[in-house]
Design a protein around this nucleic acid. Structure first.
Lengths: 130, 130
DNA sequence: TCATACATGGGACTCATTCTCAAATATTGG
DNA sequence: CCAATATTTGAGAATGAGTCCCATGTATGA
């Protein structure tokens, strides 16, 4: 919850790696990328940093079918994902109407502190062709 | 994929337990419930059976924040969930407009075999009072 | 009743993620 | 700049859901 994050070598490295990749990566992948490239960042630290970035809204998190969290630098603003189940390609989708709908449904049922998860999956055009 | 399921003691037990509970339970919970009550069903079998029931559309599956799958006998028909993060109470929600929206967004991007996950979470009225 | 394809379960195994905690380091008041 | 202090780090152990193996058990159809 603390917004006081210290600027350590490791956090910078993780952040930089995320910029390089520019698509969804798991904590594990990021960890091995960092192992090769730079002077290495501990796995635990990679996890912690990614979680913090997610909390701060700096990265998006998506869960794969096999329960692995994938992270990607976020293009500011709330949005959802359209994910190809085959090649993992992702398209960001916005829809204010969905947000409103979620809010409405929730408060109609007396729920507060509303959050929601909306993910669409399918097989993208490229993978269909294959 | 096979619709040929044999009616074993265990499958009947799992199914019956699901009816008893009538709310979301994890495979683990179901397993320990069965251990106490009846003559026991192996954990592996509980998992298998729940997965099969899910495949056959007999149960709903929801994943908790900590990546545990929760199962509940399904009230037929596609719908979504409004879940209390505190007490796990669940409300089923229907919205044809969301379905249409997902379809539209997906095909607009060339995706086929569309599926989607929509889950709203919040704190229910009871838990707010507490 | 038999043959047999399918089902079971105990326990080993996987694998992402979290925890532990002493050592390293960023930050800050002086 | 330095010491005091609050954070952060990381290696390895621990956790825990879920899967796998495979010898044994059992519905089911002929």
């Amino acid at each position: 919850m603390s917004t006081n994050r210290r600027e350590t070598k490791q956090r910078v490295a993780v952040s930089a790696a995320l910029d390089q990749v520019n698509e969804f990566v798991s904590a594990q992948q990021l960890h091995s990328i960092l192992r090769d490239t730079s002077d290495g960042v501990g796995l635990a630290t990679v996890y912690r940093t990614l979680q913090q970035l997610a909390e701060d809204g700096e990265v998006d998190v998506v869960k794969t079918a096999d329960n692995e969290s994938m992270y990607r630098r976020c293009s500011r603003g709330h949005h959802h994902h359209l994910l190809c189940r085959s090649c993992r390609r992702t398209v960001e989708v916005e829809s204010p109407s969905i947000e409103k709908w979620a809010q409405k449904v929730a408060s109609a049922n007396g729920f507060a502190e509303v959050d929601h998860v909306v993910e669409i999956t399918g097989i993208c055009a490229d993978c269909q062709a294959r």
